[in-house]
Write a protein that binds this DNA or RNA. Structure first.
Lengths: 342, 342
DNA sequence: GCATATTGCCAAAACGCTTTGAGAGGGAGC
DNA sequence: GCTCCCTCTCAAAGCGTTTTGGCAATATGC
């Protein structure tokens, strides 16, 4: 069923039918109703391609995921996508996913632009001085950044959490519990949020006259296994940390497993605070929940970014947002253990 | 830069330029070379929409994810997507994602078909007598099923793992270790793979004169938290299970946490075997790895399904495949503990 | 040397929609 | 009754490709 066929059956011109269905004002209410009913009855839907070609809008939002060397797929990203994609659908947009080898990332953006495949993009996990920002500006594609590139002047529209402040706050909380030997299990510091978290961590230590130990600050892909290995190594060192901060619940599980395998008690021998993206398959719930955490639902962030981008594309003025993490006291923290004289 | 512009600059017709760039034979090698160089220099790319409209092919593959009531996003799905999407990209296809409320699922398929937005689809997590199979046949859209609908005669093309046999094998392994009190922590049994796993589990028990206990077989969304809660409950019952099988590493982590929180030792007091989709952020590695597992890399499955679908669309004959899980002995299993006379 | 293939190119017609510009019909204003 | 202005509708021209059908020019077969 094409527009023309539908028009023929109604004894109207394609023009009128098109206008009626697209909500243009210059069509009689009665005619419109008749057209709408017919369209529904015949199950007519405009052919996406034809519409896109005619309007010049693709009605699609792109998400480019670079598959890193490590070939790690980020479940956090998946949760973000779920939030975003739901909004796209409800607003009539399609979600275009491009999982490409990291080396092809820039090329992929260029292609998307040249072929006009998408109306806009979300930039994930911005790095320092992220080249994608300039690239997308050059390509004149609307975009919203999830995260912040502090170093970029004339900042693009972004949504971020207050990573620095959160980690400073969490660290201070642990300091007040008497802890003095800290460790930070961070995400990859090529990505700006990780840097900001470290800065918050270091700031809190410094504010309280404590020194950060480079060997106790690790940045890595946030896998359970990585976290386990690193924590195990730390715990086997002399003067192991009694307080660990980590960047995701996934790593937190690895840390927790290591602590237990080392024969220690979480929240007792070793305290742990994690950033918690509130992943649907890994909810930090209970009364109190297992982890003391800095929570910021990534899914909501996805939905919000989607809305911001859609508004941005529509030419509306959108302003960036910085969300606060919620601090949740759980069972993974407690007073620093008494020093056992070696 | 449009095709016409490019043709004008070259002093050729759009026809010839199009043919040259699309590899048709009826163009002089010399001319073709000239065209290709010019296209590269000017950075010409065919407009996706125009091409789609002209060819009638959307060069996109759709994945519809129903967002359930529980609003759980499946990280396993994300890993599958990564595998699939990479293949699509490399074959010139785009990946279309539609995350919609479960209630809109059928409607979404219908819309995708009517608007001709995709050339084919992957059906995820088939249920018993899954209505999507008939629907997609009716809509005449090519598709590949990830999983099996045993009940459907004239089965569609599918890729599955031998879930029944694997779970039978794993259960038998535990029986041979002397275990007699079992529990199964399954995925949602509305989905066919979960049923098959249970059948394998029950079969093994029956083969060895053991009875399955309905209260020790639970199906649920595979979250860490769910797994923790259920396991905790079991462990607090009289005659708790000494052997637990679970459907994903995520639930396995929950089980493990519960076992430890109950003051028990994994592989010692309680044995655990998990199905392992080999998620990139949760690799079951080590020597031996922490979990005894039935491993089947979901990412490879995604890539394979993608290839099957692309071949299917191209009209090639593709046959379904059933993959075997690899049995990996890890540290989470051991001989049944001696019965302590209560 | 003539008829017949083959090669290399082009003009024009799709593809199915939106949008522009125009025009018929009817009501209002004088 | 005439003009003017709405309201509603339409024909036609895009949008940027691919594809069909054809036509010169050259090569091939006898």
């Amino acid at each position: 069923m094409t527009l023309k066929e539908l028009a023929d059956r109604l004894g109207l011109s394609p023009t009128t039918v098109s206008r009626a269905l697209n909500g243009y004002p210059e069509v009689n209410a009665e005619t419109r109703a008749r057209i709408e009913i017919a369209a529904r009855d015949y199950g007519y839907r405009a052919n996406t391609m034809a519409r896109k070609l005619a309007t010049g809008r693709s009605m699609a939002i792109g998400h480019v995921i670079p598959l890193s060397n490590h070939q790690m797929i980020n479940p956090i990203f998946a949760e973000f996508m779920a939030g975003a994609s739901e909004i796209y659908s409800s607003e009539g947009y399609e979600t275009l996913l491009a999982a490409v080898p990291a080396a092809n990332e820039v090329q992929t953006y260029r292609e998307l632009a040249r072929r006009r495949s998408v109306d806009g993009l979300i930039v994930h996990a911005p790095r320092l001085n992220d080249p994608r920002v300039d690239l997308l500006r050059e390509l004149e594609l609307p975009f919203v950044v999830h995260g912040r590139s502090v170093d970029i002047e004339d900042r693009p529209v972004f949504l971020d959490t207050n990573n620095r402040r959160s980690f400073e706050q969490a660290t201070t909380y642990l300091i007040e519990l008497g802890h003095t030997r800290f460790a930070l299990l961070n995400g990859m510091e090529t990505i700006s949020f990780a840097r900001r978290r470290r800065r918050g961590f270091e700031q809190a230590l410094q504010n309280n006259g404590l020194r950060s130990d480079a060997s106790r600050m690790v940045d890595m892909e946030m896998t359970e296994t990585n976290a386990y290995d690193v924590t195990m190594k730390w715990l086997n060192e002399p003067k192991p940390p009694t307080a660990i901060l980590t960047s995701s619940t996934i790593s937190a599980l690895g840390v927790a497993r290591a602590i237990r395998d080392a024969g220690l008690q979480i929240g007792d021998d070793v305290s742990l605070i994690t950033h918690d993206d509130d992943l649907s398959f890994m909810r930090n719930v209970g009364d109190p929940p297992p982890f003391t955490a800095l929570q910021s639902p990534i899914r909501d962030a996805g939905a919000k970014c989607a809305r911001m981008l859609i508004d941005h594309i529509a030419g509306k003025k959108v302003s960036s947002e910085i969300w606060k993490c919620e601090f949740i006291e759980g069972r993974s923290t407690g007073p620093a253990p008494k020093e056992t004289p070696a």
